[in-house]
Nucleic acid binder design. Structure first.
Length: 429
RNA sequence: GGAGGGGUGGCCGAGUGGUCUAAGGCACCGGUUUUGAAAACCGGCGAGGGUUAACGCCCUCCAAGAGUUCGAAUCUCUUCCCCUCCGCCA
């Protein structure tokens, strides 16, 4: 969310952001709604002022004056009752449009419409040249009996799966490795609620535009979160933070739920795109200062890279273009891990992490403020980045570390988390 | 799930239909005093919005929403949250 005063004064800048971010929104409709809302408000406030005046006069009025004032009070009340619905309507229209205004991309964000316009920053690690025919994760996991593919699809629907045996152990292991890495780096671990109210979804920017992406628990008016970013940011909703308490750095561990509406038929094979997964997510609140935020941003990125390096997975980092960054994001880096089995076995870099700065977008929507050193109130900046998301990360993990016989040599860092096992061997049928 | 008690400014807390423009205290900030500090005394001290060149003026906010009334922190209804007890339960 942007400040309406800012929008009024910088309409062209905002218009450009709307266009570059490919958001569907007519800014003039918003500006008109804002004008309408203020016009009606002015009319109503005039009458409310009179209403208050009359209420104060009545107790002091003489016997003769009193009935006259009460009559006028009644008339003002009726007038207000007639005007108020139009204020409610104007306010609602305005609020709805305001929630659709994107934040402004940082100057370094490249202009572009699709991921082809993202700018590669660096590649780390070199994809292996396999001297044998490499298997993809579906083959490997089937071979190791790491997944039950069929049972869950019967009782839980498409894109369902059950991690079994070594597959389940691997998820716990990479999760714990990520958690330990982040705790060591000073983040506070949080296991938050995964069912939240609408305000948390709206407050973090996932609603109203991403509504169809979330699972709704209608009986209780709750929603399943698609990332623990939602409850972690909401942890401080309606609060005024002390400047001294910033930065606040959290690492959330949770299951994440995504309907993948609009992705039907896409990535249906294997565990790349699923409805339910486990994720360790980093969330930071910092002072509203671009330089501070930038430093935090690269720290979050560095944390994710450190985890990938521990897992010995080759990856690349790309700066997402304007068309690829979300409504609230002002800058986003994607970390793409090398997955040898993708792209018909030719291999491809695919997104496993996403590192974003959101400026004050979420803080404004979630009503999170910070007392600045000069005594005034401001909105803290928020940032987030994936630390690990499983099972997606198991794809590059297994595919990159496989051997010709289908066994998988675990990266050293993971061995302690797998109870000392160094090589996973296919289970005999 | 059942019964009961609560929710007032950063915190504590008074307030049960009209001078509530929310008392008082604590905390905080400024000043006087002091070598400095403390204490004492004096003053200041919430947020959001509208309007204005500015000073200022106005509106809204006593958990949230709706209602009664000329007028609501106060009365009614609904919801949320906290506490106590009972029930159920990993």
């Amino acid at each position: 969310m942007l400040d309406i005063a800012f929008i009024r004064q910088n309409a062209d800048t905002v218009r450009a952001a709307i266009k570059n971010k490919r958001v569907v929104l007519d800014l003039d409709t918003l500006l008109a709604a804002d004008k309408e809302r203020r016009d009606v408000l002015l009319e109503i406030e005039k009458r409310r002022a009179r209403k208050n005046e009359i209420a104060q006069l009545i107790p002091k009025a003489s016997k003769e004056e009193r009935p006259v004032l009460i009559e006028e009070g009644k008339a003002v009340k009726v007038a207000l009752e007639q005007l108020e619905p139009s204020l409610t309507a104007a306010q609602r229209a305005y609020d709805d449009l305001m929630l659709r205004v994107p934040s402004l991309p940082r100057p370094e964000v490249p202009l572009g419409a699709s991921e082809d316009d993202n700018v590669e920053i660096r590649k780390v690690g070199t994809p292996r040249a396999f001297p044998f025919k490499a298997k993809d994760h579906v083959e490997l996991m089937t071979l190791h009996k790491m997944v039950d593919w069929d049972g869950p699809r019967k009782y839980a629907g498409g894109r369902s799966y059950a991690l079994m045996g070594a597959g389940a152990l691997l998820e716990l292991a990479v999760t714990r490795l990520a958690v330990d890495t982040l705790v060591e780096r000073g983040l506070t671990i949080v296991i938050p609620p995964v069912m939240v109210r609408e305000r948390a979804m709206t407050g973090t920017g996932f609603f109203p535009l991403g509504r169809e992406e979330a699972y709704a628990i209608s009986a209780d008016e709750l929603f399943l979160v698609g990332t623990s970013e939602v409850p972690l940011v909401s942890l401080h909703c309606d609060e005024t933070l002390d400047a001294a308490s910033l930065p606040i750095r959290y690492a959330g561990v949770s299951n994440c739920f995504r309907r993948e509406a609009g992705a039907s038929g896409k990535d249906t094979k294997g565990l790349y795109r699923v409805h339910q997964f486990t994720k360790v997510e980093q969330v930071v609140f910092c002072m509203p200062d671009e330089q501070v935020a930038e430093k935090e941003h690269y720290q979050l990125l560095g944390n994710a890279e450190a985890i990938l390096e521990k897992l010995e997975i080759p990856y690349r980092v790309a700066l997402a273009c304007t068309g690829e960054i979300g409504l609230g994001q002002t800058r986003k880096h994607e970390v793409e891990s090398w997955m040898p089995g993708r792209n018909d076995g030719k291999g491809a870099y695919n997104e496993t992490h996403s590192c974003s700065t959101l400026g004050d977008f979420q803080a404004r929507r979630s009503n999170i403020r910070v007392r600045l050193p000069d005594g005034t109130l401001g909105y803290p900046y928020t940032l987030n980045n994936t630390a690990i998301a499983s099972p997606r990360i198991l794809i590059p993990l297994l595919e990159n570390h496989q051997n010709e016989d289908g066994s998988v040599t675990l990266p050293k860092a993971l061995v302690p988390y797998m109870n000392g096992v160094t090589v996973l061997r296919p289970r005999a049928l």
